[in-house]
Amino acid sequence: MGSETAAPPGSHEGGASPWAPTPYRVVERAQETADTATLALEPVEPAPPPGFVPGQFHMLYAPDIGEAAISISGATSDPRRRVHTIRSAGRVTDALTKARVGDVVGVRGPYGRGWPLREAEGKDLLLVVGGLGLPPLRPVLYEVLAHRDRFRRVEIAYGARTPKDLVYYDEIQAWRTRKDLRFQVTVDRAGVDWYGDVGIVSQRIPDMRFDPSSAVAFLCGPEIMMRGSAQALVDRGMSRSSVYVSMERNMKCGFGQCGHCQFGPFLLCRDGPVLPYASVERYFALREL
């Protein structure tokens, strides 16, 4: 498997319990949409946090409430800051989205295998993104833009529910003005004040510009969107092993011991969340797996 992991997964040196969260302070907060916020966290203690690779996640702990698996959405280059974009979808994520600057939350990890970015070097890179699939891919974009010459064409298609549900709005505006990448945005539905595309994100694939024999695609979003998009990429001649998806399931531990995140043969927290489409295609087709 080409996925990457920061070595070693987790940071349990010194015999510390892998279950114990480390306190981090909220140093910045941005309201992205009505129900989604971005928190920048820094460790309360001076020790720097463990490194991570794009696509990995943390178990974030809302004190007195519980934990949720949240992708890291900031740059790998920042030694201390760990950024997460969280949508309120339950008790834990609701508390996390409401955390204010100065509040302390807990962090465990990072966990999982990230995007195989090195595999995309020298090739065209396609990001097909749905909804809150953008946060786990933003570190990829940062890395690509920091080393733009290592990649050929970079194409991004991002789909959201409505224009109001787009995250990183200002950043996207800036990315869209760049000449060295193409960032397309689609929404499922819109009002009259939206002059962009309306439809579903996989519709953008037929006119993406890339060389199917030398391209790598990273897909992140709702499973049905990834399935449709992977098929559309295969239809355009891409190999199933050059298309990567990031899977999501219920998770409690993050290191392969609670059993919740099984997806066929995979423990997604340990073997994923990023997996080649070639190895998950068969399981996508099975109901209630």
């Binding site: 531990c253 609670c258 059993g259």
Partner: peptide, 26 residues
């Protein structure tokens, strides 16, 4: 079988909270 879940048990005083692991079932 090794599946487990976690439980958060905050004290009434709010001064501390305990995290338990409990057997779970698929």
């Amino acid at each position: 079988c090794f599946c487990s879940t976690t439980e958060e048990v905050p004290s009434l005083s709010g001064e501390e909270t305990q995290r338990y692991r409990r057997w779970d079932s698929c």
